[in-house]
Computed example of a mutant assay.
Amino acid sequence: MMWESVFDLFTRLRSVSVSQYGICKLVVRRHRGKSVECNGGHWVHSGDWVGELHLDNRQVLQLSRSVGPDRAALMTARMLRNSLKQISLAMDSTPELAKVKALTGITLLHRGIIYGLGFELHPMRSKWFQWFSTYYLRLLLMVLHPGGKRRVKQSTEKLNPMMLMMTKQALMERYRKEVIPCRN
């Protein structure tokens, strides 16, 4: 978890803001790299503002230790859904989020964790960043998952990072309808 503290410091230096929404840290920064075409004909270009999602690994580790890895994965997905609802509500009231065009993230667990959440999968285009992300995320999986080392060895060819993307429009359409307004 010491690495988490170093990562948090580095993240704050390269972003406009870092906010916590449930199990997610949301880092607002400019998109770097090639343009990405999303569903519905929306594009995210280099220089556009994005919200980079990071799971709070301390919370994930605590869940895994307390309820086991399988139950922790289900709970993490539910908590991520709630975080996305919170982010959709904050989009209108938080100036840093008003300019965000899309939410992004990098993950090895794209097969299981994104089911039903509304993210699109995109291959990583930068070979260097893909290489770095592969080794970093595999190391993280070995540390956070009780059977992580065995899992990484058994599934090495399947554990390739993918970029997740959800446009602001898709986020609002999907998660605003799930929010039930309070009545006085």
Rank of each mutant, 00 (worst) to 15 (best):
Val143Asp: 03
Ala77Gly: 05
Ala72Trp: 07
Tyr136Cys: 08
Met79Cys: 09
Asn39Glu: 14
Ile87Asn: 09
Leu89Phe: 03
Arg150Gly: 06
Leu74Cys: 09
Leu84Arg: 12
Trp49Tyr: 11
Arg111Ile: 09
Tyr115Arg: 15
Thr156Arg: 10
Thr156Phe: 10
Ile113Ala: 14
Glu157Ala: 06
Asn39Phe: 02
Leu108Met: 11
Gly41Leu: 02
Met162Leu: 07
Leu139Asn: 09
Val44Lys: 00
Gly68Ser: 06
Ser66Thr: 14
Lys127Gln: 02
Gly147Gln: 14
Arg81His: 15
Val36Asn: 00
Lys153Met: 09
Met91Asn: 02
Ser64Ala: 15
Pro161Glu: 08
Pro95Asn: 03
Val36His: 01
Gln59Tyr: 01
Leu139His: 11
Leu53Trp: 05
Ala102Leu: 10
Phe132Lys: 01
Leu84Gln: 08
Glu52Ala: 08
Met91Tyr: 08
Trp131Val: 01
Arg65Pro: 00
Thr107Tyr: 13
Ala73Trp: 08
Met162Ser: 04
Ser83Gln: 10
Asn39Trp: 02
Leu55Ser: 04
Lys101Arg: 15
Val36Trp: 01
Asn57Arg: 09
Arg81Met: 12
Leu80Ser: 12
Leu141Val: 06
Leu97Asn: 06
Gly51Arg: 07
Ser88Glu: 15
Leu137Trp: 03
Leu109Gly: 14
Gly47Ile: 10
Cys38Lys: 00
Leu97Arg: 11
Val100Thr: 05
Ser64Thr: 15
Leu55Tyr: 04
Ile87Leu: 14
Val60Ile: 15
Asp70Ala: 12
Ser46Gly: 15
Gly51Asn: 09
Asn82Pro: 00
Arg125Gln: 11
Glu37Ala: 05
Leu103Gln: 05
Val50Trp: 01
Lys158Trp: 04
His110Lys: 07
Thr107His: 12
Lys158Gln: 14
Leu108Cys: 10
